Amino acid sequence: MNTLVKKITILPMILLGFLFINSAVYADHFSSPEIISPNFMKIIGYLKINGLDAEPGDEVAVLDSNQIILEHTVVTANGEYVLTLFGDDLNTEIDEGFQASETISFLVWDKSEQSEIVVEDSMLTPVDREYPGLEVHSFDPQCFTFPGMGTFCFYQFSADASFHGLDIGVTYTPPEMTIIDFSPKSSDISGGGTLSITGTNFKEGITVTFGDTNSGQVSVINSSFLACTVPAHGYGIVPLIAVNPDGKAFTVTDAFEFIAPSPEILSVHPNKGHIDGNIPITILGKNFQQGLVVKLADNDITEYTFSENQITFINPSNTANIVDITVTNPDAKNTMFEGAFEYKDIIAKFDILSQNTGKAPFTVVLEDSSIGDVEEWFW
């Protein structure tokens, strides 16, 4: 009997190869074991999703009564699908597949929406259909009526090597794309780290934006998890925005913080000057930000020029003292350079070399020349 089953299925199998051949190769979403058994049945039909022919890459899977996927197929063209269901070989002690009259159910994978759909019996339509050289019979469910509970219909496996026509028309509302959580919640302004995002209905081609700056790279691990590269960005808290290729978006407001590093003062030039002030002082350092505040001793410096690495201002007058300089960025991060500048009351010392000549030759000794070049002296 087993030999006969194998022989009578050779011709239909060849015909099906011509009917559903397609050179495209798609990665499977569902997985099922490889089963070798002489007992089998075939299901042939068309799959529609929300009224449209299934697209290449969509899938149909068949589950046993324990909700385990034993067979699946990938749609290749025009919504057509073919499933081969292998049954248990009664000549062996191994359970190779479906049992005779076992209840079967279906799952559909919508590749474009990255969604699994449970197929209800109302979405299944048995059909009689003829292909060249092949006759397909309708796949009628077995229905049972239970007192007080109504009628229940089940599709069952039958190891008769026959070909059954069953069209599947699923209707469902694709899940919305959402962001549930992400980590980390912050980065320094240089970016470069990896952000992990969990959510729903992530699709290949999704974009992630930090405020107005796109992530450099997004990797969709599955429909509920993705990873992306954090871009460089100015400091502050920005929204996190994900947009699927179909234009559906999800925004988390005030989500991600770009943290600027603290300012640093490396040196001050000059570091000494007269108590009258009014000389240019240059601070060399890094991480200076627009809107910073400079404080020299107790004096707020309101006029200055700056870049990320340099600040220049005219120092105010002060009593003779050694004072600190503090730079505070708008984000309140600051740095202090202790003993940054010395105010000095410069004294010119005159030494009379000779009193006998009646002349007054003088030697001028400057205590400190770091206040700048002397152009002219009066006395």
Rank of each mutant, 00 (worst) to 15 (best):
K7P: 01
I10D: 12
I21W: 14
N22Y: 15
S32K: 09
I36V: 14
S37A: 05
S37E: 06
S37K: 04
P38W: 01
E55N: 06
E71C: 15
V74S: 14
V75C: 00
T76M: 07
N78I: 04
N78W: 09
Y81K: 11
G87M: 05
G87D: 06
Q99R: 06
S101I: 04
V108Q: 08
S112E: 00
S112A: 00
S112V: 00
I117Y: 06
V118S: 05
V118W: 01
M123W: 13
R129L: 15
E130D: 12
E130K: 06
L134H: 04
F146G: 09
P147L: 15
G148Q: 11
M149N: 13
H164C: 01
L166K: 05
V170E: 04
M177Y: 00
I179P: 06
I180P: 03
S186Y: 12
S190N: 15
S196Y: 07
S196P: 03
T200E: 00
N201G: 06
K203N: 14
V208F: 00
Q217K: 13
S219Y: 08
L226V: 11
A227W: 00
C228F: 09
V230E: 07
P231H: 08
H233N: 15
G234W: 10
Y235P: 08
I237Q: 03
I237M: 02
V238C: 07
I241K: 12
P245N: 10
F250I: 08
V252P: 01
V252N: 01
T253N: 12
D254G: 11
F258C: 11
I259Q: 10
A260R: 01
I265M: 02
P270W: 01
P270T: 04
I275E: 05
D276N: 02
G277A: 15
L284V: 15
E303C: 07
Y304N: 03
Q310Y: 07
Q310R: 11
Q310G: 05
S317Q: 13
A320C: 06
T326L: 10
D331A: 13
A332K: 04
T335L: 04
T335G: 08
E338H: 01
E338G: 02
E342S: 09
I347Y: 12
K349L: 10
I352C: 03
Q355G: 03
T357D: 10
A360R: 13
A360M: 12
S369A: 13
I371Y: 13
D373I: 13
